[in-house]
């Protein structure tokens, strides 16, 4: 996990960090280990189900990563082990409901269904979430969708937005210290602005962490 970078005791952790060109810092932080090989909350079966769900909320396409490739599962898993811990039961129970819907739609688990079947289930969840604000399953879907968007577009420090997939998709330059008067001109092509993350800004400030 990326968590091994710069988080351990000063001596041991720094020894494992390769030399990094500061302008490439966000790449090092996020491409080191993009796989969700450690789970802090979910069990592997739950993780697989949730990954398949977020993959339908923001799907990947050729050349354009979706929520699954961007590590949204990791964002949610890490969140549930920390800031979002009050939602642990909501997720556990929600995934059981998702499994139930999958069983009724075909065979096996949600992650095993073909894409059209999964999309039919997501369309149902979306409809329920809009029509009945008190329905648990609909509420669960709304929460997952919210967290999918957060993990896809939030700073990669939170475990998602791998390779800045979310920011590249929409053209958001990320954690900028400032914009120059030139860049503020109408019509400026913002894709020319190098993207930065919170981690990059800390590095630019020097060793102040």
């Amino acid at each position: 996990m990326a968590a091994s970078v710069g988080r351990g005791p000063p001596g041991s952790a720094t020894a494992r960090i390769p030399e990094i060109d500061p302008s490439e810092a966000h790449r090092a932080m996020t491409t080191d280990n993009p796989h969700t090989d450690v789970l802090l909350f979910f069990n592997p079966a739950e993780a697989r189900e949730l990954d398949a769900l977020v993959d339908r909320i923001i799907p990947g396409e050729p050349g354009s990563p979706g929520a699954s490739e961007a590590g949204v599962l990791r964002y949610i898993d890490q969140g549930l082990a920390g800031f979002l811990r009050d939602l642990q039961t909501t997720y556990r129970r929600g995934l059981l409901e998702l499994g139930e819907l999958a069983r009724r739609s075909g065979r096996g688990r949600f992650a095993d269904l073909d894409i059209p079947t999964r999309e039919r289930i997501v369309a149902d969840l979306d409809r329920i979430g809009r029509e009945d604000p008190d329905d648990f399953t609909g509420q669960f879907f709304r929460i997952v969708r919210e967290h999918t968007v957060q993990g896809f577009f939030g700073d990669p420090a939170y475990g998602g937005n791998t390779d800045l997939a979310g920011w590249r998709l929409v053209g958001f330059p990320g954690a900028q210290w400032s914009y120059t008067p030139d860049q503020m001109q109408p019509g400026f092509d913002a894709s020319r602005i190098p993207m930065f993350t919170v981690s990059d800004l800390y590095r630019r400030l020097g060793d102040h962490r």
Binding site: R56, I57, I58, E119, V122, A123, D126, F153, L169, V170
Partner: peptide, 20 residues
């Protein structure tokens, strides 16, 4: 971007490629 999502066109489906 997250706040932009919260402001998105209510007529557009909020999941799948429509959202993306």
């Amino acid at each position: 971007p997250i706040e932009a999502y919260h402001n998105m066109d209510p007529r557009v489906r909020r999941w799948g490629l429509d959202l993306k």
